[in-house]
Design a protein around this nucleic acid. Structure first.
Lengths: 130, 130
DNA sequence: ATCGTTGCAAAATATTTGCAGTTGA
DNA sequence: TCAACTGCAAATATTTTGCAACGAT
């Protein structure tokens, strides 16, 4: 969606309020169910469109997925870091080590067991900046 | 897919070989295109099934997505850590701080600019272990 | 009045699955 | 032999989009 003068619609307000009220990282469909309790005529398309706008304007964060960002697979199985370019979408392996992360494996964080991790840095890659 | 005696089929071998040969974290469709050059009659369904098995047996890693793990959104926008339970699928915010990650923001890693990061620890949560 | 936004429905995209035939152990 | 696996096609699931009406500024 192109940049333009955003309007502060009731739908967008409620989507953001319910997203903030939810501490469980809802999917679009889960958020739709919540928002529909307050705005019964809202459509799922509007939820998706507003989530895109909220992300674009830095008011929410997308943890993974979307049809245009399908699952990606990595044949390198030892824990390592990634960088994904916001411009070209490419995901690269990094050789940088962060021992503090490796040390978490096999331990608990806040009582939850850690077996592995996925770390993706987001930003513009060298190629896309030059 | 239930655990059973895996067979070492040619299709599975080639999927894994091509996944390892690819350093760019291919999607299932991209891998399909590569594998099809060696096994022209392979189907996309077989690619998906083998990627599931390879992940299950720890021979590859899924970076994000899949139809059963849709995009999740987070109304908390400052960088923070997550834990996703392998058993119940729930994603939780963590309060633990890793300054080494926050310090990366605004800098480059291996020449790629970092604006933000997504970190998800994987493992079984406290509730699912008890 | 303008143009961003909405609801609805249809389309597009991505992933999974049923089935009958094939194949590895 | 025989259960795991395959190709194919159909079914699901998720996300996006076209359009006419609506509404914020």
């Amino acid at each position: 969606m192109t940049v333009c003068q955003r309007r502060n619609t009731r739908q967008r307000q409620v989507v953001l309020e319910e997203l903030r009220a939810e501490n469980c990282h809802p999917t679009a469909a889960q958020l739709y169910d919540r928002v529909r309790q307050r705005l019964p005529r809202i459509s799922l398309g509007t939820i998706y469109r507003n989530l895109d706008i909220l992300e674009e304007t830095g008011q929410c964060v997308r943890l993974c997925g979307s049809a245009s960002a399908e699952a990606r697979f990595d044949g390198r199985i030892e824990p390592h870091l990634h960088h994904q370019c916001r411009a070209c979408g490419r995901v690269r392996d990094l050789e940088t080590m962060l021992p503090v992360l490796d040390d978490m494996i096999g331990r608990n964080v806040e009582d939850h067991r850690v077996d592995s991790f996925t770390l993706i840095f987001h930003g513009v890659c060298a190629g896309c900046r030059s």
